[in-house]
Amino acid sequence: MTLRLGRHSFADDATLVMAIVNRTPDSFYDRGATWAEDKAFERVATVVAQGAEVVDIGGIKAAPGEEVGEAEERSRVVDLVARVREAFPGLAISVDTWRASVGDAVCAAGADVLNDAWGGADPELVDVAAAHDVAVVCTHTGGVTPRTRPYRIEYDDVVRAAIDDTVAYAERAVAAGVARESVVIDPAHDFGKNTFHSLEVTRRLGEMVATGWPVLVSLSNKDFVGETLDLPVGQRLTGTLAATAVCALAGARIYRVHEVVETRQTVDMVWSIAGRRPPRRAIRGLQ
């Protein structure tokens, strides 16, 4: 099925790199490097030049921390979305928020996707997506409260739970009026999951792809990579790309990342190995 993110449509076999843009002073990876709006805008320009098809703008870091109210969240993201919309009309803009009111404001400013990383914590978010005819990302968090860390969460079958919850959320979005071709599911590595859970979700990602909903994976530099390899933030790129390759082989469509160039090369290589993308230019042995 064609994937449509707001104003932008993508072919059935297209893979998309979604670059993370934090308008936060405290996100784990960049630690405030793009906190200033001008810095965040520069980051957008950089990732566009690197080939990202989507940016995911967020105003609140995922981990626990200083309370960020609705007004503050809006002030961080709405003007930036408007500025990016005007400067990059061909770019799909996603906003990472769980709040319907913030979603409404960013859609009015030009957003194409509401990336609900907290799995439907605000039930009205899908109504906002429907009203603006934008896409929604339906994530699995195991029902945790936004901005909390997982603590002793267990599942009978984490993949079954991820599929059941995200597909139910997807159907709820469609019932609310979101276009079927604009609904994406995300198992949400590390969210409501220990490292063993995230590894199993990665290993069995094909089961999520088999639902028919396009799958987004957000793997970039996360703790499950760090714990698996015993490496701190800043040394997790190789592990991230290994996980990216496994998800690409399974058929994930959207990759939410910090490193655009490395991810694009990994996904293209695996997509070609899988026979879904021709090589760029093949002449060896065929002269």
């Binding site: 993308r277 021709p278 090589p279 760029r280 230019r281 093949a282 002449i283 042995g285 065929l286 002269q287």
Partner: peptide
């Protein structure tokens, strides 16, 4: 008899355009 002319060997860019 260049095999790169065959459609099963097409890349995104054509090396023998």
């Amino acid at each position: 008899g260049v095999l790169a002319l065959l459609p099963e060997h097409a890349g995104l860019d054509d090396p023998v355009a």
